[in-house]
Computed example of a mutant assay.
Amino acid sequence: MSGIYAGARPSRSEDLLARFPVVLALFDGAGGRMLLHRPGLPVEEAPPVPVVYQYLKALAHSAVAVHEIALRDDADSAAPAGFADTVEQGLTTLPDLSLDPQAAGAATAVLAAVRAFLSTPRTPGSATTEELEDFGRSCSPHVVTLMEKAAAVQVTHWMSVLDQWHILLGPSGFDSVHAAVNTLYVTRRKNILFTVLAQYLGEQAIGDRLLLFETPEFTTTPEQMLDLMTRVVADRDLGRAFFGHGQVMDVEILGDAAVHAIRTRMRQRGKTPVLPTLAPYDSHQWPWPTDPSSGSAPADLYTATALHQPRPPAD
């Protein structure tokens, strides 16, 4: 099965790209990438997020480095001195970024706080919890300001791109867009690219045409994303044929059988199983579909199969 299945995917990808516009949104440290595949046309990659986003984000994150440096007990490490030099350079060159006054003020405050902490004599690794918390409190309002500025740049950019693609595809074309976003665990629930795309594709696309793929890495490739989207869409044909609903195959197919086994074994042990509530397969909740009333389809493999009875024999 695996060999046959893998061999069929290239033609499935070609079929997907021939039928639908596909948007791939990939995380990276520069604010993300978005690529648009249109049937019969070369792939189009959107311009990158303006570089000021990276500066704002780096300035905000500089305070995080202090926390890590303060906990190190490696007296021979050159990291503190090297980072102190970087902070001094940042303070000197900050005017070159031409930030607005609020962002410039927040950046100056964060870098000054970092410099003050690093210049305080202390034994490596001896910073107390109270010192670190006081430092965090002094930085946090300014870090929040910098992150707000960075997010505004990022969101404005991607919404402008999607405005243009909406015009390019037209309403009917955009209504058939299939989109996928990759996410690491920490960015799953508040994924920026996914949330921006949801504003354009709508709630009804979530879990149907708008997919969130969790990975163990911050970055992945467009080819891997497209391959995974192809697998999901192709498996929906299998789900409809075998179980009566396409999205049965969107989740671990053995999951419902395993839940049944867990319930049975926990009952034998006189214990209450720890299990989530089940949402219907057509639920558009995200990031976790758990509301039983959020759709009209079956919520588990057993219900779907019971409804998907063989057709009566022809007369």
Rank of each mutant, 00 (worst) to 15 (best):
V177F: 01
H178G: 08
A179Y: 03
A179R: 05
A180Y: 04
A180P: 09
N182T: 13
T183F: 03
L184R: 07
L184K: 02
L184T: 13
Y185T: 15
Y185K: 04
V186F: 04
T187K: 10
T187I: 07
T187S: 15
R188P: 01
R188Y: 07
R188F: 06
R188N: 12
R189K: 12
R189V: 11
R189L: 06
K190L: 13
K190S: 15
K190E: 15
N191L: 06
N191I: 05
N191A: 11
L193A: 13
L193F: 07
F194A: 14
T195H: 06
T195K: 06
T195W: 02
L197H: 02
L197T: 03
Q199L: 09
Y200E: 01
G202E: 02
G202Q: 06
G202M: 05
E203G: 01
E203W: 00
Q204L: 06
Q204H: 10
Q204V: 05
Q204M: 03
A205M: 05
A205L: 05
I206E: 01
I206D: 01
I206N: 01
D208M: 01
R209E: 04
R209Y: 04
R209T: 11
L210F: 06
L210Q: 05
L211R: 13
L211T: 13
L211F: 07
L211M: 11
L212T: 03
F213I: 14
F213R: 11
E214W: 00
E214G: 11
T215R: 09
P216T: 11
P216Y: 03
P216M: 03
E217K: 00
E217R: 02
E217L: 06
F218S: 10
T219I: 10
T219G: 09
T219P: 00
T220R: 04
T220F: 01
T221Q: 06
T221P: 05
T221F: 02
P222Q: 06
E223T: 14
E223H: 13
Q224N: 14
Q224Y: 11
Q224V: 13
M225V: 14
L226F: 11
L228P: 00
M229A: 12
M229G: 07
M229E: 12
M229D: 06
T230I: 05
R231C: 05
R231I: 09
R231N: 03
